[in-house]
Design a protein around this nucleic acid. Sequence first.
DNA 1: TTTACTGCAAACCATTTGCAAGCAT
DNA 2: ATGCTTGCAAATGGTTTGCAGTAAA
Lengths: 137, 137
Amino acid sequence: MKEILKEKGYKATPARLAILKIFAKSKAPLTAENVHKELKRNKKNKDINEATVYRTLSLLEEGKILTKVDFRKESAFFELNQEHHHHITCLKCDTVEDFQSTAIEKVLRGIARNSSKFINIKDHSLELFGLCKNCVA
Amino acid sequence: MKEILKEKGYKATPARLAILKIFAKSKAPLTAENVHKELKRNKKNKDINEATVYRTLSLLEEGKILTKVDFRKESAFFELNQEHHHHITCLKCDTVEDFQSTAIEKVLRGIARNSSKFINIKDHSLELFGLCKNCVA
DNA sequence: TTTACTGCAAACCATTTGCAAGCAT
DNA sequence: ATGCTTGCAAATGGTTTGCAGTAAA
């Protein structure tokens, strides 16, 4: 964990380690508020400031340790930077399911190739929204 | 134009008509600020308030006359609700190109079908980001 | 007339920032 | 010792809202 930070030239502070640990434990993307609340549940980390959380999230995103996820919410979500994948999220309960699709990546490459105005496609966002089995019931 | 508003039970006020006209003329999605600035360029609409613009955008979105577009920007973009499509946007100059892909829609239906947690996929967002020919040069 | 709409200014909420103190290296 | 980090509080920027006046139906 410390290694990851030092590799990027970031100091391994208690706040950063605690925040990374929270992401390591979480199966779903988290907001700054999620992280801050989780920190407060632990006596050791209770005093880590909201501003520090935001600064840490930006730093880790910049260092490609975290990735920003674009749900249609007011606040930004982050997750550990892992293999390229997408999410399906429940409109009612916010359950998240990950998925990958080589078929989609392939189609997207074709679209990039056929574009009249663009040469260089760097990235894309793809998120599905629906109702999970529990919430449809 | 008035018809569209009255159909939904909305009053056809000058502000709403002016805002709709701006969207009808624009080829790219617009922010509230874009719209407000465009209104100010016309003597007749110069005094339409920012708050009215926001209220109108929400109303038109709710009435499915406008659709919100999720670029990775601080502010929200809207466009006239048209045939389902996606965008490629330039990371440098914000040029927008639209595209459609039955192949993608098909793959997404398959993914929805294979999901373990979800039964009902309502919607998805898909945006590509890259560099347009001008900005690569 | 009646109810929806608008302008204005204040409020909001997520996020950012300046500064002085504190800590990792 | 040095400069990156942090806490705190204030500022920011996009967006929303209460209220009293105005206009569409």
